[in-house]
Nucleic acid binder design. Structure first.
Lengths: 353, 353
DNA sequence: GCCAGACTTGTTATCGATAACATTCATGCT
DNA sequence: AGCATGAATGTTATCGATAACAAGTCTGGC
């Protein structure tokens, strides 16, 4: 600030230049300025810089606080973003979908302009329908994370549910399973539907019949999946494998199997989707499809930064990140005994962790 | 902006006033201004307002992205903060403990001044040692969330581990348990130590001997607790109840009991600490100590807002929030059979959810 | 009829950094 | 010598909102 200028006998302008540009300031002057800056403990005021630059060096993350911030994924995504932003001047600002009323495009625009947010990351399910219209009003780089939006002119980065579910289904088929159940997630979200479709198509491609009685809703909830699995497994001739649309439901299935005296994976193979942090430590360790959540954040942040730097017309990014099949201890070839039903008691063995 | 002023034939000042103050502007004028504001799609520029007000209407959340953002609690705390901030103009900005180098007090001050952060919320373990010094340099309201700092002149809000662990221990004693194990969390953190101390003291107060062989380290990890419980439970005369310092470890204990053919809670009572979202849905539903994580955020945000509004010298807040005992299905009076050991197979019953 | 006091609106200066333009000074060329 | 060139620095204006102060208007009371 002016103190530095006075201290060094220079003008504020020169100080400003010395602190930013490498050209057009003599080495001796820069030296002096830097020294004084250190000594007086000066630091640029971002707000003022932002006002002049019409730019706040901020990326907004729009998220449902009520429904999603407590979620495991949210932190992962933010962490991925931060990795990209660490080297830059950019920061992350959180916007609450509920309290800000992002349903109203006008308010949304207001807020972003008010805060001079450089770009927006929309996180979480259920946003896809309303954001197209908002974007039209919003001359702002924007990317939706976690939902694939189809062919719309909005950028998104999502996880490739289809290849992930296909890989898992093939894994179960390769093990020899032919009687496979599938537990669905939310009906509203596209993710679960894609996983289910991939499951069905992969079975069909391998000429394995799809058993409609073993496809049912679990809403991504442990408890609902538990109930469903109890039903399936306590009837005669139950499935030999169950593929749940997320890990939490897989936990529920495993628990149901146990309370019926079935061993996992000997009597029933169970597969999930997500690879939650706890899934590797679960007993038995869960076979699942790992979602690259941090990478979602990384890609989103990098995209916005790119767009902001080129400041040309924003290229639309439609990216699906590959999943990774994590084969652990909850899946195995089907045992002969399982066909007989669930009532027969078995000897219990300790499981590999 | 000026457009509004021109449109309404008023001065920018009057427009500014009409949009903020309820006094000192005539109703007719305000009407006109608001109408024009709507029509022209105007919105105040926060950056400019901030520059003038020397104040950014932001609370910084300092958190270890690497270690804590993915954690379940983080979202809860942020959610709690947002509840308080929803009615205000304040927003949440995230600062990464790692990439910002908050170890260096100078850099920390710089950053906060640069961003004009109004107050700081420090989240996560392990901050207590270094922040005192930083605070001295930092003329900024600050509160540490989740760690009790003892008698230092830094505000904190934390969970009352001691009363929580005492309540749980008394619950187990009330049920009739006398052979109770305890699984510790991280050695470094104070939380686990406090829970353990409360456990020991409560036993002592009830003249129940503390069994050192049934107190062991679990590091808050499911798997480690699983191993430890396997060891304890496969020996003769095992404990009839195990109190784990967090829920994840309780899951591990329940799993260990099951793989040894023990029923929970009939043969072994298991208690946790945290009340994770999944714990109520776990089968059996977990008896645990609920931590008011969202309240931590709420209290922290409210404290900072208070301090910022009074702008007098900040009163130091040392608050411990009460926990709540959640009695569910994983604890019960000790069965007679448990004393005999773990090898005898039992009939399996379905459990209450 | 005139003025105190309340009410409403306008003017100027400011927050701090910096873009755009102006100025100074030294060097090298004809 | 005289002037063009360019490097280094200084001046002014600006981003947009608003605090502080100024001024104008209206009311009622003497």
């Amino acid at each position: 600030m002016d103190d530095i200028a006075r201290d060094t006998g220079l003008s504020a302008m020169t100080v400003s230049r010395a602190l930013r540009e490498s050209q057009s300031v003599s080495a001796a002057t820069r030296e002096k300025v830097l020294e004084a800056t250190q000594r007086l403990g000066y630091h640029v005021d971002f707000i003022a810089r932002q006002l002049r630059a019409k730019h706040a060096f901020q990326l907004g993350v729009v998220v449902s606080f009520r429904g999603y911030v407590g979620h495991y994924y949210f932190g992962q995504i933010v962490q991925g973003m931060q990795q990209v932003l660490a080297g830059t001047h950019y920061h992350i600002s959180l916007f609450d979908l509920e309290s800000e009323d992002f349903n109203d495009p006008l308010k949304c625009v207001n807020l972003c302009h008010q805060r001079r947010v450089g770009g927006l990351v929309i996180v979480g399910p259920g946003q896809k329908e309303r954001f197209p219209k908002i974007l039209a009003d919003l001359a702002m780089p924007l990317i939706v994370v976690g939902s694939s939006l189809g062919r719309q002119a909005i950028s998104y980065v999502a996880v490739d549910n289809i290849s992930g579910a296909r890989a898992m289904t093939e894994h179960l088929l390769d093990l020899g399973h032919r009687r496979i159940g599938f537990i669905q997630g939310w009906r509203e979200g596209r993710d679960s539907a894609q996983r289910e479709q991939a499951f069905r198509k992969t079975l069909a491609a391998h000429k394995v019949p799809v058993m409609e009685q073993w496809i049912g809703p679990g809403e991504y909830e442990t408890r609902k999946a538990h109930h469903l699995a109890m039903e399936w497994l306590s009837r005669p001739a139950p499935p030999t494998a169950i593929f749940a649309a997320n890990d939490l439901m897989a936990y529920g299935v495993i628990d149901a199997a146990r309370s019926l005296g079935l061993r996992v994976p000997e009597d029933l193979s169970v597969a999930g989707f997500d690879d939650l942090g706890s899934s590797a430590d679960f007993v038995p360790a869960l076979t699942t499809v790992a979602q690259p959540m941090a990478s979602l954040g990384t890609v989103a942040a990098r995209y916005l930064l790119d767009v902001l730097q080129t400041n040309g017309p924003a290229a639309v990014l439609h990216q699906k990140l590959p999943t990774q099949l994590q084969v652990r201890s909850s899946t195995a070839p089907p045992g002969k005994s399982a066909v007989a039903g669930a009532s027969k008691p078995k000897r219990r063995t300790s499981r590999r962790a």
